[in-house]
Structure formats: structure tokens, C-alpha cells
Simulated scan of single mutants.
Amino acid sequence: MTLTLSSPLSLYSIPIVWILAYHPQVIKGNLIKKTIGYDNVNARTNVKRVADSDKVSREVVARVQRAEGAHLNGLEALPMWGLGILAGNFAGLDHWTLNVVSLAFILTRFTYNQVYINYNTLGKGFFRSLVWAAGSLMPLYLVVKAANKLAAQ
């Protein structure tokens, strides 16, 4: 079987986007582990423990906090993404459209994570917001396109 952009692949984007939502969590955990040690018994206190520690540089604290923010944003984006893909498939949108939008969304989520975690300037924060906005419109586009197709039937 040859895979092309016309193959039914878009549903695979849902677990990929889930992985992208958790990738910042791995980065955050590794930073905490290297600095003060990860407390898996009280895992939700780790970011505060890092922030309160005198042993951790402000730069590392900020990176841990940005990784936490990227993780939470990924979790916030995931339901709407899943809804967009499921609605598009339910309505019978063409696979090419679903796949191209899926690839674009995956790229925006990857870029968003990288920019959010690694850059700490106002200009790059603005770029992060643009990437977020572009990505946020993609599942909405799929839902509206699916709704329009179903309304036309």
C-alpha cells in the first residue's frame, strides 16, 4: 500500500498531537531531575519547588515554567484538535484536506513547543503567539468545513 496525502491518515494525528502535548512535560521533568530531583510522590509541586529553590538559576526556573506552560497549552489544544479531526472524518471531508491540515497543525504544535520552551524574549513571545493563533484556527476550520458539508446534504 502506497501512502499519499490522499490516504486516510488524519486520525493518526490525534495521538501525535497528544505526544506533542506531553513532550514539554518530559523536558520539564528532566530539568527538575537534574537540578533538585523530581518528587514523583508530590509531582504537582515540582515546579514550585524549583521556583523556590536557591540552588536553581532563574534561567532554568523560567525554562521549567515555560515547559509547564507549553504542556498545559498542548492539553488545552488537544480536545479541539480531536473534535476537528473526528468531525472532518464523520462529515466525509476529503483525505487530502484532512491530511494537509493535520500536518500543518502538527508543525505548528512542534514549533510552538520549541519557541515557548527555548526562547525568552518579547519578540519571540510574539512569534509564539502567532504560531498559537495559526494552529488554533485549524481545528475550527475543520469543524466549520464539516458542518458546512453536512448542512449541504
Rank of each mutant, 00 (worst) to 15 (best):
T2M: 12
R66I: 00
Y12L: 15
I85V: 10
L130N: 07
N148H: 10
V56I: 07
A87N: 05
M80N: 08
T35V: 10
V143H: 02
V101W: 00
N42G: 04
K124P: 10
P24W: 00
W132A: 10
L72Y: 12
E68A: 14
K55Y: 07
F127K: 12
L72C: 08
L130H: 09
L75P: 07
P24H: 05
Y22A: 13
Y38D: 09
S13G: 12
N120F: 10
S6M: 12
G69S: 11
N30F: 14
I117S: 04
L78V: 04
V41A: 14
T121Q: 00
H23V: 15
G29H: 01
I32W: 01
A104T: 08
Q65C: 10
Q153K: 15
D39L: 03
W18E: 13
A134I: 15
R66A: 11
A91G: 04
V131K: 01
K33R: 14
K28W: 02
L9S: 02
F90S: 11
L5I: 13
V143G: 02
D52F: 10
A67D: 03
L140M: 09
V56A: 05
R128M: 12
A91W: 04
I19H: 06
F105G: 06
G123E: 13
Q65K: 13
L20S: 01
R66S: 08
Y22H: 14
H71I: 01
N89F: 12
V56D: 08
T35H: 05
L107Y: 09
S53H: 07
L78I: 09
Y141E: 06
E76W: 04
K33V: 01
V100N: 09
Y119H: 15
N118L: 12
P79N: 02
D52R: 05
L107R: 03
L150R: 05
V143M: 02
A43C: 11
A77T: 06
A21M: 08
